[in-house]
């Protein structure tokens, strides 16, 4: 049995003090032993951005890929080695901006993995430009007169793309975060967790105080997470900010529909050039 300390890595995060990402890192370290995972059983894949540095701060297998490209690498990894629990992480610019094409396809493809997007509604690492989730008219370095674009709604995007597990958390509420992340990991299929993770340096609107005041855990309100219409309603509402599991419906994941090659992970396939194989291969050649 693993414990939180098994996941502690000696590299200290270089995030700004107060960054919402600390909450996610703490929650993740807590969530993993709770779902009986050992450090060697977890693969964390990230893109580029402040939040994507997370795999460097936790003791598991990890890969820090390219801006927007965590999901392709994570999916290829999972298909090759699907005994591992694969968790992709990144920010809103990474996942909802440059990498959103991959996200849509990953959600409909439904490979068994979890994707956590630390959403701070701003580009932090590049010092504060408007992001795909920045509010309309929000003033940033790149939009000094206000953001002219409507923000993306990652939850309705996910619901419309066939995502089989759609959730949102605020990283300051660690108990809820741990619970939702554990359910996302246990979910058989692609799970999206949109995690509000305030940027204390560049976003003075969506602050810790803002989220503490405005979020409401819908799972505590007798909400039915199998109802996709209700999920769309909650995801689109403007009177409060809903968090929790909006929608969960198990459907055969990609690995199950590709059973002929994936009933055992690729890396465990019996290989080598046996005489039988050789004869068969030669026959194929002709």
């Amino acid at each position: 049995m693993s414990e939180v300390r098994d996941f502690v890595h000696k590299v200290v995060p270089d995030w700004c003090p107060g960054c919402g990402d600390f909450g996610l890192l703490a929650g993740l370290k807590k969530a993993l032993p709770g779902v009986e995972l050992e450090p060697n059983e977890v693969m964390l894949v990230s893109g580029i951005g402040c939040s994507s540095n997370l795999p460097g701060f936790i003791n598991t297998y990890g890969m820090h890929t390219l801006h927007g490209r965590a999901l392709p690498v994570a999916q290829g990894f999972k298909l090759a080695n699907h005994k591992m629990t694969v968790i992709a992480v990144g920010g809103d610019g990474d996942g909802y901006g440059i990498g959103v094409g991959h996200l849509v396809h990953a959600m409909r493809r439904n490979i068994d993995m979890t994707y956590i997007v630390m959403n701070n509604a701003v580009y932090g690492l590049t010092t504060g430009q408007t992001s795909p989730t920045s509010g309309l008219r929000m003033k940033t370095k790149s939009t000094p007169f206000g953001n002219p674009e409507l923000p993306i709604n990652p939850l309705t995007l996910a619901l419309g793309s066939g995502c089989s597990f759609v959730a949102r958390v605020y990283t300051g509420h660690v108990t809820q975060l741990v619970d939702v992340v554990q359910k996302a990991i246990r979910h058989q299929g692609f799970a999206l967790v949109d995690a509000f993770s305030p940027c204390v340096t560049f976003n003075k609107i969506n602050t810790h105080d803002f989220f503490k005041t405005n979020v409401k855990d819908i799972n505590k309100l007798g909400y039915d997470s199998s109802d996709i219409h209700a999920a769309f309603r909650e995801a689109a509402r403007e009177d409060y900010i809903a968090t929790g599991i909006f929608y969960q419906k198990e459907r055969p994941c990609y690995e199950a529909t590709e059973e002929e090659t994936l009933h055992v992970p690729l890396i465990d396939h019996e290989l080598g050039l046996s005489e039988e194989d050789q004869a068969q291969l030669m026959a194929e050649f002709i």
Binding site: V45, P72, K78, L79, A80, I267
Partner: peptide, 11 residues
């Protein structure tokens, strides 16, 4: 990217 992920996975 997926091919790179598979290579890291051991294939």
């Amino acid at each position: 990217g997926a091919a790179i992920g598979a290579s890291f996975g051991g294939e």
